[in-house]
Amino acid sequence: MIAVIGLLCWTGLMMAVTYLSWTKMEQHEKVYLLLIYSAIFLSGVFYLFPLLKKLR
């Protein structure tokens, strides 16, 4: 269960950061920033999930 909760928390955090950056920025450059966030987010998911699963 920890794994699932961890996954949800991680998603929520990244979504909040993305939303804030998206609304705060005006330039097209924010697309690149978003992609970097997205890469961190997904790598995080695939890295954290097996770790959290072992915790159980």
Binding site: L35, I36, S38, A39, L42, S43, F46, Y47, F49, P50
Partner: peptide, 12 residues
Amino acid sequence: YRSLMVLTLLTH
């Protein structure tokens, strides 16, 4: 997981 992480990087 390793393949998925590599794919994540390449996709981005």
